[in-house]
Design a protein around this nucleic acid. Sequence first.
DNA 1: CGTGAGATTGATTGGGATCAAGGATAGTGG
DNA 2: CCACTATCCTTGATCCCAATCAATCTCACG
Lengths: 236, 236
Amino acid sequence: MSVRDTEHVAIPLVCEGCAARHDGICSALTPVELLALASHTRHTRHDAGEALALESSEITGYANVTGGVVKLSRVLQDGRQQLVGLQFAPDLMGRLYGRENLLTAEAASDVELCRIPKAIFEALVASSSALKLRLLNQSLQDLDEARDWMVTLGRKTASEKVASVLLLIAQRSARGNKRVTFELPLGRADMADFLGLTIETVSRQISKLRHEGIVVVTNHRHIEVPDIEALRRRAG
Amino acid sequence: MSVRDTEHVAIPLVCEGCAARHDGICSALTPVELLALASHTRHTRHDAGEALALESSEITGYANVTGGVVKLSRVLQDGRQQLVGLQFAPDLMGRLYGRENLLTAEAASDVELCRIPKAIFEALVASSSALKLRLLNQSLQDLDEARDWMVTLGRKTASEKVASVLLLIAQRSARGNKRVTFELPLGRADMADFLGLTIETVSRQISKLRHEGIVVVTNHRHIEVPDIEALRRRAG
DNA sequence: CGTGAGATTGATTGGGATCAAGGATAGTGG
DNA sequence: CCACTATCCTTGATCCCAATCAATCTCACG
């Protein structure tokens, strides 16, 4: 089989135009591998608020987030909750090699998933060095982000914390421009759980940023940031 | 070459009895790979408090922690500091494929390292699927731990936080027994930076745990936990 | 024994939580 | 199209946990 021959294997139809194929996990796969994988995947849609995986439940498979935003959280026995991460397309969901979920995954917005059975995906990982490397890089980056957030949680003031989430979401939503407009995938309660604050404090700090002209808020969820650098300075 | 023949390759002398060879990164290597690697490693000793890597400095290599405890931290511009992790033997230090350090690494206790040049180690990773897998599992576990700690930082009270560090260190120091005795690798200032608290609050909470009989403190650094389950309950 | 860094304890302050009303918004059914 | 309603958000008043300020105390080390 010549090198050119691999180009004659058609990309699965469902994968055309999928974010995961270009920037996600699937970009590490050859057309042949992608074709084999596609025959085992199942696409699902989920409304905002729907639980996608429950803490302590058995892991039945993995899933690429192909649209929307997923929030990952842990809860203490008495109900205190902490969001520990957000997943945007084309992130892969599911703790590799895990037996049970350590986290709850919930749709923050309407979400589209491309689900892959556990055994199929793990076999693919075992056989593909490129995929292993891709997953390794992904988890190292997630670790960097988790550690960054530890600084936010442990050492920033309420005001800096709120600026930090807005900045995080703004950066995911638009690139490069000084002025940024976006729709918040999180309500005030989720922001509070992400920041280790209460709803009231989040609301007050957003109001403060609004009065100071750092952000323009329309309809609670819609945010405009006239000067992203000004916001960055507020994030500490 | 028969299977038995690989056993005729001698394990490098320096690797005999090394923690990394049994439980660490090196356990994923064949004797041949280990031998090749050993010729490039350099063993170093460091006193408590010594900086091992500086935030924003160039990454020049990786290192196995072969003895002692290393603390990883980030600082904000104004000096506020947050510890984001501890590394015990036989953890691997250094952000794989990183160009500059995102964290400062400092010896918490006296530390022994087995240093490996960046290029040598990366070539080894590229060639060994078993090593890739091992590193992937390590970083996934670090991510789980970072997320656990996010819950501690974001949602626990000062009292629960202090119980949480003590529990973390107790679990690393001794296994299985109900009664545990250990030496703290961190002073009060480091504990405060790990927990997002002040020295005074850490000290007060330790005193409270002492008065309640949850811990016995001798010489500030030496801790006894009569009933590890009682401590676990305090950690939330 | 003296010294200095680290730890403890006490007094006071303050930032964010809690308690408590209202105000906006999106969805629903008339 | 417009109440009606439930949910989410905002704002205000008060409280409390942990920070800050300040004074010893302990202990390792010369």
